[in-house]
Measured scan of single mutants.
Amino acid sequence: KMTIRVKGKELARRIAKEMKDRNLKVEIHEHGDEVILEIE
Results as ranks from 00 to 15, higher is better:
Asn23Asp: 07
Ala16His: 04
Leu37Pro: 00
Ile4Phe: 08
Thr3Leu: 13
Glu30Val: 12
Glu38His: 12
Ile39Asn: 01
Lys20Ser: 12
Asp21Thr: 10
Lys9Pro: 06
Glu40Tyr: 15
Met2Thr: 10
Asn23Trp: 07
Arg14Gly: 03
Leu24Gly: 02
Leu24Val: 06
Ile36His: 05
Gly8Tyr: 11
Ile15Ala: 01
Glu30Gly: 06
Lys7Glu: 04
Asn23His: 10
Gly8Lys: 05
Val26Gly: 01
Ile4Val: 06
Asp21Ile: 11
Glu18Asn: 11
Lys17Ala: 12
Arg22Met: 10
Met19Thr: 01
Leu11Val: 07
Arg14Ile: 08
Leu37His: 00
Gly32Leu: 07
Glu10Ala: 12
Glu18Lys: 13
Asp21Pro: 02
Lys25Tyr: 09
Thr3Glu: 05
His29Ile: 14
Gly8Trp: 11
Arg13Gln: 12
Lys7Val: 09
Lys20Trp: 09
Ile15Thr: 02
Val26His: 02
Glu38Tyr: 15
Arg13Ile: 13
Val6Ala: 03
Ala12Asp: 00
Glu30Asp: 10
Ile36Val: 10
Leu24Asp: 00
Gly32Tyr: 06
Lys1Arg: 12
Val26Leu: 05
Leu37Glu: 00
Lys9Asp: 03
Met19Ile: 05
Lys1Tyr: 10
Glu30Met: 12
Gly32Cys: 10
Lys9Ala: 10
Gly32Asp: 09
Asp33Leu: 06
Val26Cys: 02
Val26Ile: 06
Lys1Phe: 11
Glu30Phe: 14
Glu10Asn: 09
Arg13Met: 15
Arg5Thr: 08
Asp21His: 11
Glu40Phe: 15
Lys20Thr: 13
Glu34Pro: 02
Leu11Thr: 06
Lys7Cys: 14
Arg13Gly: 06
Lys1Cys: 14
Glu18Asp: 07
Arg5Gln: 04
Ile28Phe: 08
Ala12Gly: 08
Arg5Cys: 14
Glu27Met: 14
Val26Gln: 01
Met2Cys: 14
Asp33Cys: 07
Ile28Gln: 04
Arg13Trp: 13
Lys17Leu: 09
Glu38Ile: 15
Ile36Tyr: 11
Lys25Ala: 07
Ile4Gln: 02
Glu30Pro: 04
Glu40Cys: 12
Lys9Thr: 09
Arg5Phe: 10
Ile4Met: 09
Leu37Phe: 06
Arg13Lys: 12
Lys7Pro: 03
Ile15Asn: 01
Val6Asp: 01
Ile15Cys: 12
Ala16Ile: 13
Glu27Trp: 14
Lys25Ser: 09
Glu27Lys: 13
Lys17Tyr: 04
Val6Asn: 02
Val35His: 05
Thr3Met: 12
Asn23Tyr: 07
Asn23Ala: 06
Thr3Asn: 04
Met2Gln: 07
Glu18Thr: 13
Leu37Met: 05
Leu37Lys: 01
Gly8Asn: 15
Lys20Gln: 13
